[in-house]
Design a protein around this nucleic acid. Structure first.
Lengths: 130, 130
DNA sequence: ATAGTGTGTATATGATATATATACGGTATG
DNA sequence: CATACCGTATATATATCATATACACACTAT
């Protein structure tokens, strides 16, 4: 039997306010963005993943449905679910641009809360290094 | 009749995924943090606010209950609801520290997504000025 | 004192989101 | 063609978000 999604390492925070199917979605997207999963790689079956994570099939299925609608994966009934990523570097770039846009709104909130430019640049140094 | 919460300007985004009672909470907190509302200032009654915002009394009540639990306001049955802020500058400082902590986690995510230090400092310049 | 009007409070109710169990249908392969 | 994997569909449970409406408390002008 072929290994399915053996690279996947998903850990759920059952007490998080984020729904479990959202956590699963995020984890799979991360695996794609980081290049751990390539085009046409099989994902774990909804059954297997549900067993691993101690959730029901419906929950894993729900995550897969969403990811399919968002264009990250495709499903073949009776066969399994597979990664659909045509151009990884473009996907990564698009995501970065999206994050930058969100970041902009976030900075506005921080500014309105009275935080100073220096406090943020200091934090950036701390995380990103000098 | 005394004016109640006449300073308040709350606008709801009915299509936002953020629950309406959360939006109301946030708006009131903002009014407190910005000094528009002082200690013991009356808030609009749950009825009046509900009417203004086209929501039910239960929704405004829910917001007030949460804010009371968080220590921002207090309620006197039959009289109304009032701001409870002992030390504004401390509250503002505490909130800034909390935001900075959250910001730290956020920056880690941005770094992992492959964003560069310069992209963020550039964005900060844009928002905060030179 | 009490009626009136303004407060907050409590109960019953519904829509939607999240998660489940279980029975069903498709696909490959010995 | 049996079997052992896949995904699919139906009925169901629980929590969250929001509502309507009837009730109780507090001030104030008769």
């Amino acid at each position: 039997m072929e290994e399915r999604g053996g690279q996947m390492k998903i850990t759920l925070d059952y007490s998080s306010p984020m729904p479990m199917y959202e956590q699963i979605k995020e984890a799979i997207k991360q695996n794609i963005y980081k290049g751990y999963l390539e085009n046409n790689d099989p994902l774990p079956s909804i059954r297997q993943l549900a067993k691993e994570l101690n959730v029901s099939m419906i929950t894993t299925k729900r995550a897969y449905i969403d990811l399919e609608h968002e264009g990250f994966i495709y499903t073949m009934s009776g066969r399994g679910t597979f990664v659909k990523i045509q151009d990884l570097s473009k996907a990564v770039y698009d995501r970065q641009q999206k994050l930058l846009e969100e970041c902009k709104d976030y900075f506005v909130i921080l500014k309105e809360a009275g935080l100073k430019k220096e406090q943020l640049t200091e934090l950036i140094k701390e995380i990103f290094g000098e």
